[in-house]
Amino acid sequence: MTRLTGSALRLTAIVGENDTWHHRPLYSEIVHRARRAGLAGASVFRGVEGFGASSLIHTARLLSLGEDLPVAVVIVDDEPRVRAFLPQLDELLAGGLVILDDCEVIRYAGRDRQTRPKGDASR
Rank of each mutant, 00 (worst) to 15 (best):
E91D: 13
P70C: 04
P80E: 04
G96E: 01
L62A: 15
R10A: 08
D112N: 15
T20N: 03
I106S: 09
E91N: 07
S122F: 08
D112F: 13
G52E: 07
D68V: 02
E79W: 02
R107Q: 13
L62N: 06
D101R: 12
E29L: 06
H23P: 03
L97R: 03
D112C: 07
T5H: 06
L65P: 01
L63Y: 11
H22Y: 06
H32G: 05
A42Q: 02
P87D: 12
I57K: 12
T2C: 07
V74G: 00
Q114W: 10
L11V: 03
G6S: 07
L92R: 01
E49Y: 04
E29H: 08
R123P: 10
D19F: 03
L62E: 14
L69T: 00
R3T: 13
V15K: 02
Y27N: 02
A94T: 14
R81Y: 02
A121W: 11
R83S: 05
S43R: 10
T2D: 13
S64W: 01
V73G: 06
S43V: 15
I14V: 09
T59Q: 04
P87W: 07
R116I: 14
R61H: 11
V48I: 15
L26G: 06
A60L: 11
L9G: 00
T59C: 05
A109F: 01
L39A: 06
E104N: 14
T2M: 13
L56I: 15
G38P: 05
H32N: 14
L86W: 00
A121C: 08
V98N: 06
Y108D: 12
V76M: 11
R10E: 14
E67W: 05
L86Q: 00
A84R: 10
A60I: 12
Q88R: 07
Y108M: 07
G96K: 00
L69D: 00
G6W: 09
V31S: 06
F85W: 03
A42H: 01
H23F: 11
D102P: 10
D101P: 05
H58V: 07
P87H: 06
V71R: 09
S54H: 15
R123N: 10
E67S: 12
S43H: 11
T20W: 03
L86K: 01
R116W: 08
D19S: 12
Q88C: 01
D90R: 13
R46H: 14
L97K: 01
R46Y: 09
R61K: 12
I99W: 04
V105H: 12
T115K: 08
R46P: 02
V71E: 00
G110L: 06
T59Y: 01
L92H: 00
L69N: 01
R83K: 15
N18D: 15
D112Y: 12
T59K: 00
R35V: 10
V15D: 05
G119Q: 10
Y108L: 09
A53K: 11
A40W: 00
A40G: 07
T59A: 02
D19C: 03
V48Q: 12
A13S: 14
G96Q: 01
D68G: 06
L39M: 09
D90V: 12
V71L: 03
